[in-house]
Computed example of a mutant assay.
Amino acid sequence: MKIGLYGYENAGSTTLFNAITGFNIPTGFSGDRQQTHLGTVKVPDPRLDVLTGLYNPKRTIHAELVFTDFPAASREKKALSNIQEAKSMDLLVLLVGAFSSDGQKPDPVGELENLLTEMVIVDLEHVSKYLEKQRKLPASAAGKDPRLVALVERLLPHLENGLPLRSFGLTSEEETALRGFSFLTLKPALAAINVDETRLSEKPDEAMDRLAEHHRVRPFLLSARVEEEIGRLAPEDQELFLADLGLTEKLSGRLLRAAYDLANLMCFFTVGPDEVRAWTIEKNTPAKQAAGVIHSDLEKGFIRAEVFTYDDIVEVKGNEAELKKRGKVRLEGKDYIVRDGDILHVRFNV
């Protein structure tokens, strides 16, 4: 899963990137504001740690997310200058500054509104150019899909009214048909509100809530500077610092959990003496498709999957033979919907 960080200058996007990834990229005037930064983050999951203890494998592999910190723009310019790169992201984090900087009063609602409006305009321009091109093509032109054209035509007035496609009410089939467009206002998005540490326990104000609801994005309060400082402490000191702030875990865990929830994602596991591993899939994914996430050969030659739950294997302390005796190991076919925390042994034949 790829997550893009966007924001204006001094909103703290690179500080947030450092807090999440553990990197130490220079920020402020000492940093390169035109540089794109990439970092991979392991998704913390206590269940994976428990399974590692039960199976004692040669290696443990966490699910991973790739974060991209895009160059910050001045408030007089477009923040989404890297449109194609933004379209390649699976989820967008729109960072706005809600703290005083250089004596200037913050305007997080205005910043977020500008970012969200930019996304609508990008999609509107894409739709307009597509429809203009389609109108010039003869009806018999190869590859022309009248149903897709009709669907995109329905989107036009919605975008012209300044509304995101998240609020259009598309069916799952329609979303699949539009996947190739990579519309920005269809992507899940977090509105990350960067506040002073004294405001971490507060809730977003009403104006921010209304704007977020209008564009179907989720507000998320954080203090990037404080979280970056916490990340540099020893683990035992981190817990004390977090407790003082009324928090129970670091930003990386809170943000990744919010991202998973917003993007409708979950994890299943594969276990054994060689490897214990977490795999990320969308919720409501059939077993055959989930097997393809492990390896394409498993999807092609899928026969069935042995399935048991995390809770059940923990109860028998990793003894799969005992689990089978208790009738807790199921054989499931290709249409079985994998659940969060399921453990799969895939049977296949290529």
Rank of each mutant, 00 (worst) to 15 (best):
L54A: 06
M1C: 05
G169Q: 09
G53R: 09
A291E: 07
K250G: 14
V338T: 11
L222G: 03
A291G: 11
G103P: 08
R218M: 08
D69K: 04
F23N: 13
R339H: 13
N56A: 15
A243P: 01
A291Q: 07
K136G: 09
L131V: 07
G162S: 05
A263I: 07
R339P: 11
K288R: 15
V149T: 14
E118L: 04
E132L: 01
L80E: 00
R232H: 08
F23R: 13
L200C: 02
F17E: 06
S100K: 08
K77Q: 13
G180M: 04
A234Y: 09
G333F: 14
L178G: 11
E213C: 01
I281P: 07
F308K: 09
K136H: 12
G39K: 07
S252A: 13
H345E: 12
E64D: 06
E153H: 12
K300C: 06
V329P: 14
T285W: 00
T52D: 11
T68C: 02
K58M: 10
M208E: 01
E320A: 00
L16Y: 07
G28I: 08
L155I: 06
A258P: 05
S223F: 00
L163V: 02
D209Q: 15
L256I: 15
H126W: 07
H158R: 10
F70S: 02
R326T: 09
V350N: 13
E174V: 06
K300V: 01
I83Q: 14
A19L: 02
V109E: 08
G39T: 05
P46I: 01
G169V: 04
Q104S: 15
L156C: 04
L91C: 03
L178E: 09
P108L: 02
Y8N: 07
L298E: 12
E299K: 12
H126V: 08
Y130K: 04
H126A: 14
Q84A: 06
E132K: 05
R225N: 10
E202W: 04
S13V: 09
Y130N: 10
I303K: 12
G4F: 05
L251S: 01
H295P: 01
A189T: 02
L151E: 13
L262G: 02
D49M: 03
G333M: 10
